[in-house]
Structures are given as C-alpha cells and as structure tokens.
Write a protein that binds this DNA or RNA. Structure first.
Length: 821
DNA sequence: TAAATATGCTTTTTT
DNA sequence: AGCATATTTA
C-alpha cells in the first residue's frame, strides 16, 4: 500500500538541502519511526485531498504533527503556507509544541489555531472592506443574550412565545447555515406573526452588532465566508498564501466552517467557476508543480464520525461522511489500531457504538491485551456514588497512579456538585474543567466592559453595562436620556457622555457622568495614546488598574459588607495579573489583542496546571483527552442519554457517541457508576440504569454493586445478597461470549441480565403492546417501518420489521423504543 | 433609586 | 436547591 508512495517523497527530497539541524539522508526517516503502515501513509501521502479516518486513540495527533513536520522538512511548504485548524486553543497549542519538537524554530509562522481565532485574524486585516474597523470586539454568548433580551423586549416578541434563549439558538442555527435575516425571511412562513417578529428581531440584532462594530461567535466564521465570497480578490490572497490546510475534528464542523474551508481550497482566481468541476479534473494530471500559485491548496481532514458530538450546535456529520463526494479523488486512510486502551475497554466501546446503525463499520483493536475488567457500581444516591468514586480514586492512588492520571466524567455540569463535596471531604485534589467560568463572573465582565468601552467605543452594550457600575445614581431614566441625546446628535452613546450638561438631568448625575467620561478618557490615553505612539506593554495592566480605581469600582467593593465582595476583589486582582502575564507573552499586545484572546479562550483550554489533581469534566469536554483511569458517572436514563435528546432526531445516537467518547478516554481502568435516586430541581427522583449499559457484554463488567443490589426505595439489600456478588465461580457469565448484537441480533447476554427485573420500567416497557403483520411502527433510531412477522411469546416476543430507511431488523417488542402508528 | 422580598426557572453539551 | 429576575416597598 505504501510501496508506491514512499519513493515519491524520498525521491523529491534527497537532494542536498544543507538543512539546518540534524541532517539526514531522508529528512523524514525519524518522522516515520514507530508508525504503522496506514499511519505512514497518512504522513507521506501527497495529493489534493486526504481524509484520515482516525478512530479513538489511533494516534491521529501524532500523524498530523508528523505530516506537518514532513511538509516543512522536505521544503514542500514554508511555515507560512500552512494552516492547521483545531477544535480548541489547547489542542492548537499542543500541536504547535509537538511540531516544534520535530522541526524546531521553523514551526514559527504557521497558523495553528481554532476556526474562530483564524477568522478573527483574517477579519482584523480585512474588516475595513465591509464596514467594520480593525478594533471590532467579539460578543460572547452572554453579550449576545443580553442584547437579544433588550430587543425581544422592545419588539414585544415574548407575546409570540419568543424568549431571548430561543431567539438566540435559532439565530445561531441560521448563521451556521450561512443564512441571514433577509434570506431567512424569503423562505419563512411570513404569515405567521411569530416568524415576522423573529425576522424583525434577527435583523435588528444584526444591525446592532454592526453599529457596535462587533461580531458574535457565529459571525466570526460566517462573515469571513461572506467576505471571501463578496471580495474574490481578498479570498485569493489567502488562497495563494495557504497551500496546505489541515483540519482536525472534522466531524464536528458545521456548514459555515465547511464553506470556509471550501472557499480556501478553491483554485486561485476561480470564483467564477463552480467548485466541483475544477477540483475533480485536476487530480488526474501529473502532480502539479508545488508552488504553482493557481491550483487549489491541498486539504487534509482528520475525523471520526463516531465521535461527532456537537450536532446540537450545528455540526454536520455529513461533512465527513460525504468528503469523498465533495473532493473527488480524495485519498482515504483508515486508522483502526488503538494505542491507548486495553482490549476490554475497546470491546465495550465497540459494542456500544455498534448499536448506531448509520455508521461505517469500524472496529478498534489493540495488541496490549485484555486488561482489567470494567468496574460497575450503583449507589443509592448521587452522594453514595460520589463516595464510591472518591474511595476508588484513593485506592488507585495508593497503587501509585497519579491523581493527574485520573478523570471523572459526567453528562451535565450540575452533577459536579455532589462529587466536589465528597472530594473536599476526602481531601482529594481535584480540578473542574469548564463549569463556572472565570470570565463569566459579573465583576470580571464589568471590568472587561470597561476595557471594551476604551477599545471599541462604538460598542454601546459595554458602555451601558458600566454606566452604573459602581452605583453612580444613573438609572433607567438617565440611560434613556443619554441614548436619546446620542441619537439626536448623531453621535455614539460613548461620546454623548462627554456632554453631560446637555442631557437635561440633575447636577449630581451630570457630575457622575462627567467623572465617568473623564476616567474613560484618561485610560484611553494610556492604552491608545492619541499621539499615535505605541503604548507600552504594561498599558493594559495600568489602564485596567486605573479604570478600576478611579471609577470607584474597587472602593465600592471594599466598603461593601457582602462577604462575597472580598472574593470579587480577589478575582479582579487576578484579572490584573492576567493582563500582566499577557504583556509578558505579547510585548506588542494591545487592548484589542487582549480582549480577543480572552473572548476566544475557553476554560477547558488551561488544562496544564491540572498537575497533581483529578480532573472533573463533562463528557463533551473530555473529547481528545486520555487518562489511565476514567470514571463515567451518572450512567442513567434521562442523563445519558439525556432526556432532552429523546425528542431530537438523531439525539439518542449522538448520546451514544458521547458515551463512546467517554469510554474511549480510558487507558487502563474504566469505572461506570450510577445512582438509583438523584436529586434534581430540589426533588428526589428515581433513576434507572442507562440503556447503554445493556449494550456492554456482561462479562466485561465487574459489578461491585449492581443495580439489582440496590433497593430503589432506598438502602442496600442484605449483605448476604451483596456477598454473592459475581466474581467467583457461580457468576453465570462464563459461557456467554461477547456476541455482536448491534444490528440484527437481540442481545444475548448483557450487563443487565443479572438483574432482569430491573430492566428500567420507565425507560422502556411497552407492556403488552400487540403487534401483527402489516402494522406500521416508529422506532426511535430506525425511523418508520412495517411489521413483517411476530415470533416468540410473552416478554420475549420479537417483531421482524422492515424499516423504510435501514432495512430489516428484529426487535424485542417489550423493550424496543417503538410506538405503533 | 436601591434594597428587600417573591416568583419562577433551571440542567445538555461549547468555540 | 439555588440562582436570576420581577415586583414590591422604603
């Protein structure tokens, strides 16, 4: 497979290059070291398009970094010609570091970043082409929500059942599809008043952003696409520049991101032509001379459709499943060998994911051996469950596993509370990834709003936010007066503050406004000197300190008797420290740069300082990470799969992928735990084992305490019962092999067999549903189908169904997620 | 205008 | 239960 391709690169590259550093006859000999054949292929293949289907733990990061290194080493590309897109800033940092390890300083100058950061860079350069300035700011979801809240109120949209939240998610969805208010209006049912109001709000929202010289998260991508399409010349400069584009986690790209990549990988000067024609023909030509600056950039995408877990925010799995159609002639490399987990863990993962029907079959395997069994535990309550996790962590720690090599996953952030409580009590060092974010705290947002007011005075939201923080006696009435005055005078809200005396408000308030205006002006002079002179690196830190002090923000907190305000002061100190750190890392960094960095950084990004502590995070955050020991908690119906997913098409399948992602993070030890009761919204509800547990072969799980051992009314059944816990000879699972039951087979022996009475009644119990030949049913995953025959009796009746979309299946009538239609 | 109290809503996941 | 917002009251 690789025989033909290896000479291709070696041949082109053996010439005397006088390469800096370690010269070798074959510059990439060491890059290929330790790689299996498909991995090598993925590193050395050259062509217009390459899809690397990388199963979990198959070494894709390694492959990707070596591929980049190989391009650089062989001088096929300058660093500046490489654009690598990752999902998080942290992943970008890691990739940059690993490439640097391979090629040294030459790694400088590459663009390795997230979609959002890359787009910001482009937009900053080109903003003036379409009505923005270089100093635009970025609205995070909180800002967006606040703006929409005002607009919804102004348009009385709530009367039509619109909430800021619903409008926000709808706008986001549309933007991810590259739609705007006008294009949506054309296709929407405008006789529906709710739709009309929505379009109005959407349009108004967009105009507000434009006026504020700001982009929201989705705009960063969408507007860049718009920019490229509207200004082919601009697009061409980037097409000429980026000759090699690599995209990681391609399964989680949405349509806008797809379109962006599509724009960048067109041939230079090709805007008049349809995309397919040009790209498809070229592959049969002899390899075009590298450096020819009219052909399309080469595109490498890496992904795994089994790990697509962001459909809810517009990720379109088809981007990867239809890659070969979009890029005809694309090379596909499949990485299935897993270097991370034991076989038991992989078998469990394979069995679970095998229940998703519309996937290409892919089986992870390893040669490291079976390893330990998965450990299962059912607690009476979430506290009980947390105690188990804590105890096990301690036990593992005593066997010399470092805390930093352990992680606890959960479906929803709220589940972290119970764990935290127990961890604190048990003195286990832990760190929560994500969760309540530093930059979302009110005092931090206030401080940031002060900075925005300086950096981007057009951003009215920011100025309004700080208007009365700290309390200056400026209320709604005054705020409206300022806005009216600004509109009358055709000046910005910010500039209106300079004319306090003209507002027709009381002298006290006038003084307060004038004072705020003076402080803002003074800080602006520090951070953005009107002389045009470059501000010193410390400008942001100094300016922020000045703002916080002279505005009275700090002293108001100091004088407060609310004990929480002390913590708020500490947080502000922390923020000032962040600006200093920023100055150290970016000597030329401006306020704008600082704001950008903060806007695009997520808390999951600073995983580094997790050393020495157990990591707690959601299953989503866990993607891309790995640990020696992994605890997947709350494996219950309505949690994983989450109840909200039940209604969404494809929801349960996405939840299964999420569970799969969690399982495949584990290297050596995997724990799964659940609770029989869980407090939610202040009331205690009975929880049922997740259906996904049934999908794991029973002999892979060692139940320390199975759901059958726990009395659902509370408490644990007699010790005697607990004592005959399977493990010795009796178990009854010896003979049942891990039989594949993904498609047509009814589960033969599953993890829940040992407590058959506990098969979640609430989860699924169709009772005595009567089905006969000819009936039509609807299945949660498979869609609609027609019953051909029914066999078996009682609880074991099996329906033979021919589904419209997925063909024939056999289903256990009692428990299948079906309904008669 | 600001503090105190009542209500109601949340909990899916995030760049 | 806990938090954020709405409403009432000083």
């Amino acid at each position: 497979m690789t025989d033909a391709s290896i000479p291709l690169i070696v041949g082109g590259d053996i010439g005397p290059q006088g390469d800096a550093g370690s010269d070798r006859a074959r510059p990439d000999a060491d890059l290929l070291e330790g790689l299996n054949p498909p991995q090598r292929e993925a590193v050395i293949y050259r062509g217009p398009a390459l899809l690397i289907v990388a199963g979990a733990g198959s070494g894709k990061t390694s492959v990707l970094t070596r591929r980049i290194a190989s391009l650089l080493r062989s001088r096929e590309a300058w660093p500046s010609q490489i654009l690598a897109i990752t999902f998080t800033n942290k992943a970008a940092g890691e990739m940059r570091e690993r490439v640097a390890q391979l090629v040294g300083d030459r790694a400088q100058g590459m663009w390795i970043s997230t979609f959002h950061s890359a787009c910001v860079r482009i937009l900053r350069r080109e903003a003036e082409a379409f009505g923005f300035t270089k100093s635009f700011t970025i609205y995070d979801s909180g800002d967006t929500r606040a703006l929409l809240k005002r607009l919804v109120k102004e348009h009385e949209a709530d009367a039509f059942g619109l909430t800021p939240g619903s409008v926000m998610s709808k706008i986001s969805k549309l933007k991810n599809e590259l739609a705007d208010a006008e294009s949506y209006a054309r296709s929407a049912n405008m006789s529906d008043p709710a739709e009309r109001v929505f379009v109005e709000v959407f349009g108004e929202y967009q105009r507000a952003l434009q006026r504020a010289n700001a982009f929201d998260f989705d705009d960063l991508i969408g507007q860049t696409v718009f920019l490229f399409r509207a200004f082919p010349k601009i697009a061409d400069t980037y097409r000429r520049r980026f000759r090699h584009i690599l995209v990681d986690e391609y399964q989680d790209t949405n349509h806008a991101q797809y379109a962006l990549i599509n724009e960048l990988t067109r041939p230079v000067g090709s805007d008049a032509q349809p995309f397919d024609g040009g790209g498809g023909m070229m592959i049969f030509e002899a390899t075009p001379e590298p450096g020819s600056d009219t052909d399309a950039a080469s595109l490498t995408v890496v992904g795994d459709s089994d790990q697509s877990i962001y459909a809810f925010r517009g990720a379109d799995i088809r981007n990867i499943t239809e890659f070969e159609r979009d890029y005809p002639g694309a090379k596909v490399v499949l990485l299935e060998q897993n270097y991370r987990s034991t076989q038991n863990i992989l078998t469990a993962a394979n069995s679970v994911i095998g229940n998703n029907f519309d996937r290409k079959d892919k089986k992870l395997w390893t040669d490291v051996g079976a390893g330990e069994k998965i450990v299962g535990f059912t607690g009476y309550s979430q506290h009980d469950e947390a105690q188990f996790v804590a105890d096990e962590i301690e036990a593992l720690h005593r066997t010399d596993i470092d805390y930093s090599q352990m992680a606890v996953f959960y479906r929803t952030n709220s589940q972290s509370r119970a764990l935290e409580e127990i961890f604190i009590r048990s003195a286990i060092p832990y760190k929560i990834m994500g969760g309540t974010k530093f930059y979302e705290r009110a005092e931090i947002k206030d401080a940031m709003a002060y900075l925005v007011a300086i950096a981007n005075p057009a951003d009215e939201m920011a100025v309004r936010r700080i208007l009365n923080k700290p309390r200056r006696g400026i209320g709604d009435v005054t705020e409206t007066a300022i806005a009216r005055y600004a509109a009358d005078q055709q000046i910005t809200f910010r500039d209106a503050l300079a004319n306090a005396s003209a507002l027709g408000v009381g002298p006290k308030i006038q003084a307060a406004i004038a004072q705020l205006d003076a402080v803002l002006a003074e800080a602006a002079e520090i951070m953005l000197p009107s002389s045009g002179e470059l501000a010193p690196p410390t400008a942001v830190a100094e300016g922020l300190t000045l703002l916080l002090q002279k505005s009275g923000y700090m002293s108001a907190l100091r004088q407060s008797k609310d004990p929480q305000d002390e913590a708020r002061l500490e947080n502000l100190d922390e923020l000032v420290a962040v600006t200093r750190e920023f100055a150290r890392n970016n000597p030329d960094g401006t306020v704008i740069d600082f704001l950008t960095e903060v806007a695009l950084v997520s808390d999951a990004d600073d995983l580094e300082d997790a050393s020495g502590s157990v990591s707690l995070m959601t299953l989503h955050t866990a993607k891309g990470l790995e640990y020696d020991a992994v605890f997947v908690t709350g494996v219950e119906e309505d949690l994983i799969p989450h109840r909200i997913s039940a209604g969404e098409p494809g929801g349960p399948q996405e939840e299964r992928r999420l569970f799969y992602v969690g399982i495949t993070r584990a290297r050596k030890r995997l724990y799964m735990s659940l609770a029989m009761t869980r407090a939610q919204f202040g009331e205690v509800t009975v929880a049922m084992p997740s259906r996904f547990l049934q999908e794991i072969p029973a002999d892979l799980i060692d139940w320390r305490q199975s759901p059958g051992d726990v009395n659902s009314r509370g408490g644990i059944q007699s010790r005697a019962l607990n004592a005959r816990r399977p493990g010795g000879s009796g178990g009854g699972f010896g003979g049942a092999p891990a039989r594949r039951f993904g498609d047509d087979l009814v589960p033969k022996s599953t993890a829940l067999d040992r407590f058959p009475n506990r098969i979640p009644a609430r989860v699924r119990d169709n009772g005595d549903m009567i089905l006969g030949p000819g009936d039509r049913i609807r299945h949660e995953d498979f869609g609609e189908g027609r019953v051909d025959a029914v066999t078996g009796e009682g609880a074991k009746r099996v329906a033979h169904v021919r589904f419209d979309k997925v063909g024939a299946k056999k289903l256990l009538i009692k428990i299948a997620p079906i309904e008669k239609i």
